[in-house]
Simulated assay, not measured.
Amino acid sequence: MDLLPKLNEQKTYENVTNFFKRDLERIVLMSGSRMTDLASPNLNGAPGSSNFNNVEINLINGLDAQNIVKSVNDALHYGVDPVSKKILIGLYINHQRWVDIQPLIYREHTSFSVYRKHALISFAYSFEGWQVKNHCDKVIKLIETE
């Protein structure tokens, strides 16, 4: 008996990659933060709720941008293992090349793809959980099942 449905790994990789490349920066900007804020465990640049127009943000695709950004931050810093964290922040937040990240994770360049895929899957599961914990209005589902 399987507790969880079978994961469609390829589709999940694509969903997470597309989220980081296409959606995250827009959500971060809508929240009043900066992409560089995600490299730090604390969102120091995030404005307080008094400076934030929740009505406007909720109208845009029904997203609560601040809670989503907090969920991304929590998933990156508290939800994935240290190697995955370095890979995800390096590739998608700092826009580094994989050859620049490889020495930081002390892994062979030939195995980087395996570690990157693991990082993407770990982030997908963690991000979904953090969205629930952070009371996001609408949970963005990156996990695809068969």
Results as ranks from 00 to 15, higher is better:
residue 71 S to F: 08
residue 43 L to Q: 09
residue 29 L to I: 10
residue 139 V to S: 02
residue 72 V to G: 06
residue 25 E to L: 07
residue 107 R to Y: 06
residue 47 P to F: 10
residue 105 I to K: 09
residue 49 S to V: 11
residue 79 G to I: 04
residue 47 P to N: 13
residue 71 S to Q: 05
residue 91 L to Q: 07
residue 133 K to W: 02
residue 63 L to H: 04
residue 94 N to A: 03
residue 140 I to N: 05
residue 122 S to T: 09
residue 50 S to K: 15
residue 67 N to P: 01
residue 83 V to Q: 04
residue 109 H to P: 01
residue 53 N to F: 03
residue 140 I to D: 02
residue 106 Y to H: 14
residue 78 Y to I: 06
residue 137 D to P: 01
residue 62 G to S: 08
residue 80 V to L: 08
residue 64 D to S: 14
residue 92 Y to G: 07
residue 100 D to A: 03
residue 26 R to D: 09
residue 79 G to S: 04
residue 63 L to K: 10
residue 126 S to I: 07
residue 81 D to Q: 11
residue 99 V to R: 11
residue 111 S to G: 05
residue 37 D to R: 02
residue 62 G to P: 01
residue 116 R to Y: 00
residue 78 Y to N: 13
residue 85 K to S: 14
residue 103 P to T: 11
residue 76 L to W: 00
residue 59 L to G: 08
residue 71 S to Y: 05
residue 131 Q to A: 03
residue 83 V to W: 01
residue 51 N to W: 10
residue 103 P to R: 14
residue 33 S to A: 15
residue 69 V to L: 08
residue 31 S to A: 14
residue 96 Q to C: 05
residue 26 R to Q: 08
residue 119 A to E: 05
residue 132 V to P: 01
residue 37 D to N: 14
residue 71 S to C: 06
residue 91 L to M: 15
residue 51 N to G: 07
residue 46 A to R: 13
residue 75 A to N: 05
residue 82 P to H: 05
residue 114 V to T: 15
residue 30 M to N: 13
residue 134 N to G: 03
residue 91 L to R: 12
residue 66 Q to F: 00
residue 114 V to Y: 14
residue 40 S to W: 07
residue 57 I to W: 01
residue 58 N to P: 00
residue 37 D to M: 04
residue 90 G to S: 02
residue 61 N to C: 09
residue 99 V to S: 10
residue 63 L to A: 02
residue 121 I to G: 07
residue 34 R to V: 04
residue 110 T to W: 01
residue 54 N to E: 13
residue 66 Q to P: 05
residue 80 V to C: 07
residue 71 S to V: 06
residue 131 Q to R: 00
residue 70 K to Q: 12
residue 93 I to V: 15
residue 54 N to R: 14
residue 84 S to Q: 02
residue 121 I to N: 05
residue 50 S to E: 15
residue 29 L to M: 10
residue 132 V to L: 15
residue 31 S to I: 08
residue 136 C to N: 05
residue 48 G to K: 14
residue 50 S to W: 12
residue 67 N to E: 12
residue 41 P to T: 03
residue 31 S to E: 08
residue 69 V to D: 06
residue 30 M to A: 15
residue 124 A to P: 09
residue 39 A to S: 13
residue 78 Y to R: 14
residue 28 V to Y: 02
residue 85 K to P: 09
residue 83 V to P: 00
residue 111 S to L: 11
residue 54 N to Q: 15
residue 127 F to H: 04
residue 33 S to C: 14
residue 139 V to Q: 05
residue 81 D to H: 12
residue 123 F to C: 09
residue 113 S to N: 12
residue 47 P to Y: 09
residue 42 N to K: 13
residue 83 V to N: 03
residue 84 S to R: 03
residue 127 F to T: 10
residue 85 K to A: 06
residue 44 N to L: 10
residue 31 S to V: 11
residue 46 A to V: 15
residue 123 F to I: 11
residue 97 R to V: 02
residue 92 Y to R: 08
residue 58 N to C: 01
residue 59 L to V: 04
residue 108 E to M: 00
residue 64 D to E: 10
residue 104 L to R: 12
residue 60 I to H: 04
residue 130 W to V: 02
residue 120 L to S: 04
residue 87 I to Q: 09
